[in-house]
Computed example of a mutant assay.
Amino acid sequence: MNVIALKQKISESEKITINLGLIDLGQIDLLVQEGFYSNRTDLIRTAIRNQLTVHAETVKQTVARKSLVLGMQTYSRAELQTLRDNGQTLHIQVLGLATIALDVSAELACATIASISVLGAFHASAAVKAALADRIH
């Protein structure tokens, strides 16, 4: 019997829900209908990216000032065990995606993670998230 191990797929995007007024929605639909955008999502993504470009310098300065990790950061069981063995704790500050490996126990996470601040998405097992709930800001 062949067993194929599949890696957990990490989504490069998160689904969000927004509420728009009917006039805004109608204007979006008009632009889509006229061929400026392929669909509503295309317009919304473009608008968000344009605003992020406008504020790029502010984001860059804030990331530096707050010492945030920018992008994707994964914390493995081995890394956390090393921290525990050295009597150290971790303050996670990420702008993007922070992931705690699925093989990290709730006990190990509690022993090594002092605080979590994520602007974006935080992935961890349900047990780890529950154990760290009071440390997530």
Rank of each mutant, 00 (worst) to 15 (best):
A131G: 06
L95K: 00
F122E: 00
I92E: 02
K60V: 10
L97M: 05
F122Q: 05
L52N: 14
K60H: 13
L119T: 10
Q88E: 15
G87M: 05
L30G: 09
Y75P: 04
S105Q: 09
I4H: 12
F122R: 04
E34V: 06
E12V: 07
L80S: 03
V104K: 01
Q93I: 13
N39S: 05
D42S: 08
S117M: 13
Y75W: 15
E57M: 07
A131N: 06
S115A: 15
G120M: 01
Y75N: 06
G120V: 01
D85G: 07
A78Q: 15
I92M: 14
V104F: 04
L102F: 13
I136R: 04
L22S: 15
N50L: 10
T46E: 03
I44W: 00
A106V: 01
A56L: 04
I10G: 01
S115V: 01
G96Q: 01
L119S: 11
N2L: 09
V104E: 00
L30Q: 15
V32A: 02
D103M: 09
L83M: 09
A78E: 13
Q93W: 08
L80M: 03
H137A: 14
Q88T: 03
I116Y: 07
D42R: 02
K66P: 00
D42C: 03
S115P: 01
L6K: 12
F122I: 06
Q8P: 11
E79K: 01
K66F: 07
